[in-house]
Amino acid sequence: MRTTLPVIIAFISGLIMVVSFFLNPQTTFLGNTEEEVLQWASIIGGFTLLLGVVSIVRVNSKTVGQRKKGWLFNLATLISIFAMAIPSILPVTSQSNFGSIFYKVFPESWGSLFGTAPGSIYDWLFNYLDSPMMATMFAMLAFYIASAAYRAFRARNAEATLLLLTAVLVMLWRIPMGEAFLRLFGDNIPGYINTYIMNGANAAVQRGIVIGAALGAASMSLRIMLGIERTYMGKG
């Protein structure tokens, strides 16, 4: 029951997708079933995102509750979660059932602050705090990559030298100043880099990788549908 039922469900839900590929979704029963199944998959997918949030709340609440080292930072996380989440789920107008009760207590002019639309607290926190912070986290990688280029990017052997030379050439080619510099050695050099490196060797290798990965994904899909691959179920 604990394993067989999920295997049967995975098989049926996958089989509908495979068979309906060959049928016109607008004219057949199975095609309509496909539409419904995909809608269900999207809805269930939404709930999976919430699993992570519940985990974060649990872990941080535990740390704050036990006053472990650095618990104030965890408290900041919890406050941020609720500062973002609570206004976003409050009703925007008094037209819904919950809204009619809510706006008997609070003034209706507050409506624009709630929900997720532009001008809401949610949107403000995202645009002015969350978004710049996320961008900064990734911007810091520029410093690390510069440091790595200096410390670790060595022409130790022929293969590493080839990698290094290509990287330098591409770095030059992808900037206006570098393109102008490369043209000093021949007007066609930037074009050659695009044709023979990016669309030649690079495209060939990436093609080899995507073909291999796609074959792997297809065979893994078949294993999941047939119930051979069950690791996604975890233990127990």
Partner: peptide
């Protein structure tokens, strides 16, 4: 920590 919290809260909304 604020960043982690806001991102998690974003998912809820």
């Amino acid at each position: 920590h604020i960043f982690a919290g806001l991102s998690a809260g974003y998912y809820i909304g």
